[in-house]
């Protein structure tokens, strides 16, 4: 019989909050520091719990030490030469074994492709619940349970869930949502080396090639974020700025009719009645007045941001957020602020 191994041990055996950290080429992923920030907030509402960070890889002691500057109680670094590169089987086994051994109450991960790959599998192996892509986490003051909130239904429904009878309570959190933990010059807390029991028999995957990704080729109509430029750019060079913003946001570049006709950018970028209809999560209209034929191609975007000098531009009527100002002043600062939020 197919049985989901639901773990029904004594819930009181479980304590501590864990952040499963993520490293990218030896650098700590920003979401890890965001999760530490949230974790610190959560333990303030729980008595006697500790905040630990787990990182896995090979030769990661350095990173573990760096993480001690964020005010966590302990960093466990799981080292094995088989963990050098991403491998679902090894990663799942190393983390699951550690969770079974140490019994954390809450396990937080970033909603990255890596964690979305292994997180659900770890939860299934443990027989516990995982809520993915959360944007809010809080502790229910009455019973200490973790209330996990996420947006679903194409952004139309906000729902909160709990995992009442199983431990750990697992969650993946959207990057860029939680506030980062502050870095202090002083290191505090302990680091602990964990050597997982892994052998080559534990995987069915054979890595034959690992490459760094060049910029993704995404079509305008499928893009989650579109940054568009219009007449207000004044010249072709203005699109360098638009491109830079799009790149930081991992989005695509769009344009209204004027730049296309002026030859500032290729017509494949045109958004509007003529051109592509886009429905991204975020549409940033820069120097676009918002003529109705442009609106026709973008009004279904989930969020619309408009940056324009002219306070009477029609685009301000259909946007969620507007900035009346010079885009050449606004965008560079916006790029900087976004970078700050993403890196450290």
């Amino acid at each position: 019989m197919k049985s989901v191994k639901v773990n029904q041990n004594n819930l009181n055996d479980y304590s501590d909050i864990w952040v499963i950290g993520e490293l990218n080429d030896g650098k700590i992923h920003p979401v890890t520091v965001e999760l530490i920030g949230k974790g610190k907030e959560l333990i303030n509402n729980l008595t006697g719990k500790k905040l630990n960070v787990i990182i896995i890889g090979y030769g990661v002691q350095n990173s573990a030490e760096k993480l001690l500057h964020y005010g966590v109680d302990k960093v466990l670094y799981v080292e094995h030469n088989l963990l050098k590169s991403f491998n679902t089987d090894y990663y799942v086994k190393a983390i699951t074994d550690l969770i079974e051994d140490r019994k954390p109450e809450i396990v937080m991960m970033g909603s990255t492709y890596t964690m979305k790959d292994i997180g659900p599998r770890i939860a299934a192996r443990l027989g516990t619940g995982l809520i993915s892509d959360c944007t809010e986490l809080e502790i229910d003051s009455s019973d200490g349970k973790l209330i996990q909130t996420k947006v679903s239904f194409g952004g139309n429904l906000l729902s909160s869930a709990i995992c009442p009878n199983n431990r750990p309570q697992m969650v993946t959190v959207k990057p860029g949502v939680m506030n980062k933990a502050e870095r202090s010059e002083e290191a505090s807390g302990k680091i602990e080396l964990v050597i997982p029991k892994l052998s080559e028999n534990d995987t069915r995957l054979n890595l034959i090639l690992k490459e760094v990704l060049e910029k993704k080729q995404v079509n305008l109509d499928k893009a989650k974020i579109v940054v568009s430029g219009g007449r207000g750019l004044k010249e072709a060079a203005g699109f360098d700025l638009i491109r830079e913003l799009a790149e930081v946001l991992n989005g695509e570049v769009g344009a209204s009719r004027v730049p296309i006709e002026a030859g500032w950018i290729d017509s494949s970028h045109q958004v509007g009645q003529t051109g592509v209809t886009v429905k991204p999560d975020l549409y940033i209209a820069c120097g676009i007045s918002g003529a109705i034929q442009h609106q026709a191609g973008m009004y279904q975007s989930k969020y619309i941001v408009a940056i324009n000098k002219d306070p009477n531009a029609p685009i301000f009527k259909i946007c969620d957020y507007g900035i009346v100002g010079d885009l050449y002043e606004v965008i560079p600062q916006l790029i900087e602020s976004i970078k700050e939020k993403r890196m450290f």
Partner: peptide
């Protein structure tokens, strides 16, 4: 006027 222009179909 827009109706007379091609891009509005």
């Amino acid at each position: 006027g827009n109706g007379y222009m091609r891009e509005y179909h």
